[in-house]
Design a protein around this nucleic acid. Structure first.
Lengths: 219, 219
DNA sequence: TGAATAGTGTCTTTAAGACACTATTCA
DNA sequence: TGAATAGTGTCTTAAAGACACTATTCA
């Protein structure tokens, strides 16, 4: 019944994005075990076949261990594999990425956040994982509600506008952005809720849908 | 050095698309081993750690075994995993999908092609894999040169037009399609080459780039 | 000539971009 | 009042869609 092929190692790695000081950041963790002990790396670990229902459950377990709560948005990124990517042997890493609103993080966690343009050297093939995660994030940001998952439950139009600009990396016209987003119907105004400050109060919005929504498009 | 966690089974499965009689089809294979012996399934198999450099190499090995040559376009799709998807134990299947021009297939292979709307019942979680592969194919078709990989090296504008309509599943205006495709620059005319028949000769084109090219877009 | 496919022109509708304008709050 | 953020209007440009028109070949 049980096939006699030698089995690879199977692990998950996670790229956890957040926005701090208007900059896209990644949460890294200090490794406790060899190899690369005490080096900063993506949070990850082996799949526990007696505990994890599937690799997504393993990834959620790893994320919870890092930030203490389940990620609002988590998605499978890509599977990295091969004989040489891990010195312990032929391995498969199912990589996930998650978006974490900075407002949910506590101080010790934000201390381990690094802007994506200023990351330390990473072990294994974690550079490739990070590059792929940023590429996916940027790509999906241009046609979906993805960046909104970096914000708290309610947010203003300008906060949303800025988060799109920061994740995509380009300037977007204020009026056009507002028009496009409202037209797509991915957010709803929260009735009679406004953000106040030393200026005109701003309408608060929330995501219309708890899951990722892609914009309409044809060829 | 070697971690003592129980290791999952690791395999690859492939969804091989082609177009036959203007219909999107999948190549299935008859299983030779238990479980589900002699049932039609996606071509797949265990990773051979002493032979495959990574899971993509394993997938290419499987595809070559099925069609006899390397797939012109092959891409990692998604990784399916869990304790229950395979009766042999906790398993990880790294799924790939590939596009195969029908002109490269021989008769015995086309005999095992099934239109995606008329597939037989599939074992394991192959239904999910197929659904995800079709979703990916349809999605990418709307903003990239992907469908062109279902065609032979040279093709007419109308053949390209039809292949886009068949993969996306919607009617596209002839003039708009032509304009859009030429504007994106994903194909080049082959100088003084024309498809002839009982009608006006048609200019032949080829892909400008051997790799997938995405269309420009902003938010 | 008529059927079949190839290829173009034009008009309308819709969306995107630029940018200026008005609105509301607090110091 | 002025600084700061919120929100809207308008004009221009570009793209998408509809659809009719011309072109070339063979039976």
């Amino acid at each position: 019944m049980d096939p006699s092929f030698p089995r690879p190692l199977v692990m998950v790695d996670t790229a956890l994005f957040t926005i701090l000081d208007e900059r896209l950041c990644l949460l890294l963790t200090q490794r406790k075990e060899p190899p690369f002990e005490r080096k900063l790396a993506l949070p990850g670990g082996f799949v526990h076949v007696d505990e994890d229902a599937d690799t997504e459950a393993a990834a959620r377990r790893v994320v919870c261990g890092k930030i203490g709560f389940d990620a609002p948005y988590l998605e499978q990124l890509f599977t990295f594999s091969g004989a040489t990517r891990d010195p312990r042997g032929w391995s498969v890493s199912v990589a996930y990425y998650a978006l974490i609103p900075a407002s949910l993080l506590d101080r010790s966690q934000t201390a381990e956040a690094f802007p994506v343009e200023a990351l330390p050297a990473l072990p294994f093939d974690h550079d490739r994982i990070v590059a792929k995660a940023i590429e996916r994030l940027r790509g999906k940001a241009t046609y979906s509600s993805l960046p909104a998952f970096l914000l708290p439950a309610t947010f203003t139009m300008n906060e949303l506008h800025r988060i799109y600009e920061q994740t995509i990396g380009v300037r977007l016209d204020k009026a056009s952005f507002r028009h496009k987003i409202l037209e797509q119907g991915i957010i709803d105004p929260v009735p009679s809720q406004f953000r106040i400050g030393a200026h005109r109060p701003a309408q608060l919005y929330r995501l219309a849908n708890r899951v990722l929504t892609a914009f309409e498009r044809k060829i």
